[in-house]
Amino acid sequence: MKENLIKYILGIADNSLILGQRLSELCGHGPSLETDIALTNISLDLLGQTRSYFQYAAKLKGENTTEDDLAFLRKERQYLNALLVEQPNGDFAHTIVRQFLFDGFHLLFLEQLRTCADTQLAAIAEKSIKEVKYHFRFSSEWVKRLGDGTEESHEKMQVAINDLWIFTNELFLMTDAETAMHREGIGVDLESLRADYQEQISEIVEEATLQIPETKYWQKGGKQGIHSEQMGYILADMQYMQRAYPNMQW
């Protein structure tokens, strides 16, 4: 039970950690000052949420584990985030579409997690929902504005959706830890979110005059620790200081 709970928490946390890390790469490099600030604010929210999850997981783990150990000292295959969030920022269309596809899922997920039997996870979810609502509003607005924008912006957005849609199915596939936690009344039944996700995303995509591509093959693996080639680069960047100067502190 405890092992599965820790794994479950890490899975949730890693999605926020890796997406937060990705967005932080844009700090000072956003396409305009306002979007730069927005994306880094979203990054900060996600990293803040990650800290709450890691602090909880570290406490459950005991043996003097700290949140930093969990963030910086695991090996690639021990990270349990979905493949979607590790995909590169690409152009602004890719950054926004990745955000949009994740935010839609994240909000539905947290709304369920808020009612779960684990009071600490429920509290983190309740806190996070308020922030993620703003994220989803932000990314949805940009999807509409760029999709229903110029010919060029429309085309770039469609390319981004075509590229990233194949990563969405994995969000709803239950790992063993997730299934076990669902049985304990803690884990969210991911399959049950699928229909709502499809509906909400389609509605906005349609309003943006874009299309969800037909897909026969889906990418998966991140939630089992089998990542895309992108992950190594993220970790190299993220873990550098702790690897070069073990136990260093700010």
């Binding site: 306002e34 600030i37 900060l44």
Partner: peptide, 9 residues
Amino acid sequence: MVSQFGSTA
């Protein structure tokens, strides 16, 4: 509104 996100979250 200029930006939904300002100097802080």
